[in-house]
Every structure is written in C-alpha cells, then in structure tokens.
C-alpha cells in the first residue's frame, strides 16, 4: 500500500479541509448501545482512518458526521459549529458508501453529474465536461460514462462513487469501507486514489475500514474503535507499538493454520 505519512499541501486549496470535533457521541438502537461516548478530533487535510472489527460502530459513527443519523447525546462540530439543518449548504461534504450508493436508474455520467445538474450549478455542456474530467481522475476507461451501475464491477462502482463525490469539491470526504469485497490490486488502487485525492484537494479525509493494509498505508493517524469506544488513537507507528492487547490481537491476526 502506498504510504502517505505527511499531509503537506504544496498549493493553497480552493476550499480548505474542515476541522472535525466529536464529543461524547452516544447512540443506541433499541437495547443495543452502538456508540458509547466517542471523542475525536480530526485536523484539516488529515487522512484519519477509523479501524476496528466488524460491528464496532464505525459506519454508524461515519453516518453521524454527515447528518444521516442523529446522536442520542453528544455533539459533532464542524469548524467549531454544531451540525445544524443547513450544514450541507454551508460546508462541502461528501460520502462514498460501501455499496457505492449509485442510482441504478441513472447512467454513470448522470450519477456523476447529479449534484451539479440537480443544483443547477453548471450548464449541461459544462456538466458533461466536469463528468469527463472526474471520470478521468479516477481512471475509469472510456465508454464507462454511458453504462449503468449494474454493468460495472465492484471496484468500478466504487470509483464512480468517488468521482461523484468529487463533483461537490468536498472539504470533508468520508469513505465507508472503500476496499470491502475488492481484490487486493483494486483495493491498492483505491487506496492510492484516496491519498492522491487528499494531496490534490486537501480535503479532510475520514476512512472507516477493517482493512489493516489500507489503514497503515494511507493514514496520517489511526483510531481503533471497539464496541462503540475509541480505545487508541495515534500515528501508524504509535498504533503499531500500542500496548492494548485487543489492538495487538487485531493487528496480528492472520490466516496461518494453528
């Protein structure tokens, strides 16, 4: 995996990355407490990877940051401001879903241009140009634009979803399990794409994954979430050397027969 240890933007970004602060975030579904007081700060332009076993509350946490879930208690602040009803009008935020979240009734080009066309931000010709540019950025082959999502592989769908997120010109971009169900080569390419995007756009990037290679390959910092609590936060080196037995067990787990 391509390492990207230092967030060092060389050119001033058009829309600088957002600072995210989460305080004592709690969420319960019926009797199950999914988030049990999460505290976290993410710096602008940082790639933060939230790692943890399946069912630890990673995706639920991510959904709180983009307003798809409301917390039972605690707060999410973007640039020091609590998430309010109009936060999507004020901050440029995007999310790449595990399934891609592409609209199956629309072509790839229509999916990628959806944000611009719905909000009438560009003329149809300009939207076509932006779509072509974004698809080229995520290295999708020619001819993909007119296909429907159901005609694409999992990796290609993920790339289309990234291209669609880029049309927002995001200051904060969230990835939910970006390499899940992908073969190692495609996962590597997606990981490289995330790093390249961060360098190009300087958007604050939060990646949720249980893929250790991805986490250590792209992260500036890593958080380890277990049963709704963040048990460790630090740079990849700090996390590798962390004394928490559960974390060491998670990192050491492999498929070697006993």
């Amino acid at each position: 995996m391509t390492p990207a240890p230092s967030p060092a933007p060389s050119v001033a970004p058009a829309h600088p990355g957002l600072r995210v602060a989460v305080r004592d975030l709690r969420k319960r579904y019926h009797t199950q407490e999914v988030l049990r007081g999460v505290d976290l700060e993410i710096a602008p332009a940082e790639i933060f990877v939230l790692m943890g076993p399946s069912g630890s509350g990673k995706s639920v946490f991510l959904r709180h940051l983009i307003g798809l879930e409301s917390p039972d208690s605690g707060e999410v602040r973007i640039e020091g401001e609590l998430l309010a009803d109009d936060f999507r009008d004020r901050f440029r935020m995007a999310m790449v879903f595990q399934s891609g979240g592409l609209l199956n009734s629309l072509t790839v080009a229509q999916n990628v241009g959806l944000y611009l066309s719905e909000h009438r931000l560009r003329s149809p010709a300009e939207i076509d140009a932006v779509v072509a540019e974004k698809l080229a950025l995520v290295q999708l082959p020619d001819g993909t634009a007119n296909k429907y999502p159901t005609e694409l592989s999992g990796g290609m769908r993920r790339r289309v979803a990234i291209a669609r997120a880029l049309t927002i010109d995001p200051q904060l971009i969230l990835f939910d399990e970006p390499t899940a169900e992908l073969d190692p080569l495609v996962a590597l390419a997606i990981g490289r794409e995330i790093v390249a995007l961060n360098r190009r756009t300087h958007a604050t990037t939060l990646v949720v994954t249980h893929d250790r290679d991805l986490a250590f390959g792209i992260a500036h910092r890593i958080g380890f979430l277990v049963e709704g609590r963040i048990l460790a936060v630090g740079t990849p080196d700090v996390i590798r050397a962390h004394p928490l037995p559960l974390l060491q067990q998670f990192l050491a787990a492999d498929f070697t027969p006993q």
Binding site: R88, M95, F97, Q98, G101, L103, N104, L114
Partner: peptide, 21 residues
C-alpha cells in the same frame, strides 16, 4: 431497494431531498 442499497442516503449527502426527487 433504493433505501436498502443506500441510494436514498447518497441523495441526502448530495444535498438532494429524496421527497422532492
């Protein structure tokens, strides 16, 4: 199906109101 496969959530993150769309 759109709800289950996160298409409706994706619309919300694109600031597109699912009721309107």
């Amino acid at each position: 199906s759109m709800q289950v496969y996160q298409e409706v959530d994706a619309l919300r993150t694109l600031n597109i109101e699912p009721i309107d769309y």
